[in-house]
């Protein structure tokens, strides 16, 4: 339970920290750390405008996307405690839940009948399909390394395998989770939330017609997604079984670092040309395959 609460708390500050980092890095004064939260408060106060073309799908999609993320966060462990719900292969459920949310946001974009949003929907479907193998291969690597098949099992035993090279996986894991989180959240280098031209947008163009409450939910979903991936990262950096207060502090520190890192990455990195994205995404999966080769060597299955 504390894990879930911590994820929610860090989700509140995550976008603000990214914003602050970006404004500092680019030498602007920039908005305060609470600006995204204030934006959401404004959105919640506002009414909504719905396109006459849209129907029920458009109305329920943001809600479904958010509830998939909330459910997904229930699966993540914290410190040496098991997650609220844990079972063998729960990360499969995790990945497919996020897929469900994505399915709905894609068809919601198609529901508006706008070709801009159709374009965004298509790109979202296409790119998220290409990134998917990376997550599964990475989890397979971890499953092989620890001999467990649930998030709780894998992360609680991550540092207990007695293998000295565990840090390799921490590093590869951080790298891959960052990339996956960036793609899943439609950030640089695959997409850029600040872009102003519909033709070059991915995620932003899908939600052009959302307003008020629904748009607030979409933002919350995106923040929560960052925090969920941050929590995954925390689990592969910090060994479980320390003092619980230390864990809370470390958790928040990891989330803070993750947010700052994303802010810096976005400040100093250009986005890809749209047709270079597939190559970039497949490279990430290829790196995941490399991590798998490493685990083969470390578990003495592949002797060189």
């Amino acid at each position: 339970m504390p894990g879930v609460i911590l994820i929610f708390i860090s989700a509140l500050f995550f976008p603000g920290i990214i914003l602050r980092t970006k404004s500092i890095a680019s030498g602007r004064k920039g908005p305060g750390i609470f600006q995204p939260l204030k934006d959401i408060a404004v959105l919640l106060r506002k009414g909504s405008v719905f396109s006459g073309t849209t129907g029920i799908i458009f109305q329920i999609a943001p809600v479904i996307a958010l509830s998939t993320l909330v459910c997904a966060s229930l699966l993540l462990p914290f410190a040496n405690q098991r997650s609220l719900i844990s079972f063998g292969g729960d990360f499969i459920f995790f990945a497919y839940l996020i897929g469900l949310g994505k399915f709905f946001s894609i068809i919601a974009a198609l529901d508006t009948g706008s070709s801009f949003e159709g374009m965004g929907a298509n790109r979202e479907a296409f790119f998220s399909m290409l990134i998917e193998p990376a997550f599964f291969i990475l989890m397979a690597t971890f499953a092989m390394f620890t001999g467990h098949t649930s998030f709780s099992g894998i992360f609680n035993h991550f540092f207990l395998t007695g293998n000295d090279y565990v840090l390799i996986f921490s590093i590869i894991g951080i790298f891959l989770f960052t990339q996956i989180a960036m793609v899943e959240n439609s950030r640089v280098p695959v997409d850029d939330p600040r872009t102003h031209l519909e033709l070059t947008m991915i995620h932003e163009v899908m939600i052009l017609d959302n307003s008020g409450f629904d748009k607030a939910l979409i933002h919350i979903t995106s923040y929560l997604k960052f925090a969920v991936y941050g929590s995954l990262m925390y689990n592969i950096i910090v060994p479980s079984g320390w003092n619980i207060f230390l864990h809370v502090i470390l958790f928040l520190a990891v989330q803070l670092l993750f947010a700052v890192a994303i802010g810096l990455l976005e400040s100093f990195r250009a986005r890809n040309k749209m047709n270079k994205n597939p190559k970039y995404l497949l490279t990430i999966s290829a790196i995941a395959w490399i991590s798998f080769v490493i685990v083969l060597i470390l578990t003495n299955k592949l002797t060189v």
Partner: peptide
């Protein structure tokens, strides 16, 4: 695993298309 995941992703791609184009929009 890689094959299954790709199949899953492509299926989502295909059915968002099928459902979206047939039943949604104008």
């Amino acid at each position: 695993i890689t094959g299954l995941v790709l199949i899953g992703g492509l299926a989502i791609f295909c059915f968002t298309k099928a459902f979206g184009i047939v039943f949604l929009g104008q």
